[in-house]
Amino acid sequence: MNKIREFINYGDLRKFRFWLQLFFFIIFIYGGYMAIDLGRNLPIFSCGYARETGGNCYFLGVQHQLARPWSRLFSYASIGVLTGFLTFLLWFVVFNKAWCGYACPLGTIQDWITSFRKFLKIPYSTYTRPQYQFLKKIKYVFLFIVIIFPLMLGLGLLDGEWRGAFCKMCPGRLITPLFVGDYSQWTLDFSTGTALFLTAFGMGFTVVFFVGSFIKKRFFCFFCPMSAMHYIFSDWALLRLKKDGDKCTKCGDCYNVCDMQIKDIADDVKSKNILRDDCIFCMKCVAACPEEDALHVDIFNIKVFTSTKGGFAKRMNINNKQETKK
């Protein structure tokens, strides 16, 4: 038992994450070729517009479901909405936000773009605190579009062109199909003003996505309504990111490696549950924490992955080997 624990705690998270992300990327983008179908209620941006996905983003379905006329929505007919939501929750509850950090294809693409930037040796950008505070709210606006717009549609306040409005605005719709050679989403729809606005927004957002994620780590995740949705239910999740504030020295190592610039991870020494709405649960912070047990990932209060001095030293490649070489 201790050996397993040590193996995990001393493991190279970067490599593990890379391969796991690749694995999930293949499953979710090319799963259709392998007859994998994980349903339509996945808590990640595995876009249903791409033909061969191994499972679809929940938002595509829920937007269509909620767009039903209200008389139907608030009746027995909507048991489907409920089961869809429960399946979503069931998927989500197990891995919590780790879906973002490990499985989301759009997230993986951003990580690859980041690697490309690293390859070009271009420094990344960060937001200042006021910018950050402002930008992080945008994802709730998108969540509003995802949930409330279809409801308004069902009421007849919006016309049918707004069906699946968020999907039309989402970069995932344009990007993920590219990986199966489908560029048919890369169009502007001139049929109506609304359609033009939505597709143009999506197009623009996609360009911003590429440029943004090139200079900012996990650029899109700031705006991701899925992340906001996750956060609402993250209290029920099994996998949890916890912090022992007493052991924290506030050294800021975790903040330094955090892709999402979450300040609380280093500065908050009071809360036990340190998962914040922007978090993508990549666990880089745990890997980067040099204090014994200060940050840890739990399932049912059992520590699965915890920060250790030894693990830190190993991951940072701190050893005495250079000495002998010299």
């Binding site: 690293k118 040796k121 420094p123 990344y124 020295t249 050294c251 190592d253 975790c254 330094n256 490696v257 880089k284 980067a288 924490c289 040099p290 830190f312 030293a313 940072m316 701190i318």
Partner: peptide, 10 residues
């Protein structure tokens, strides 16, 4: 006390 952790070795 505090060891330095680095995300990108640049």
């Amino acid at each position: 006390n505090d060891m330095v952790s680095i995300d990108e070795w640049f």
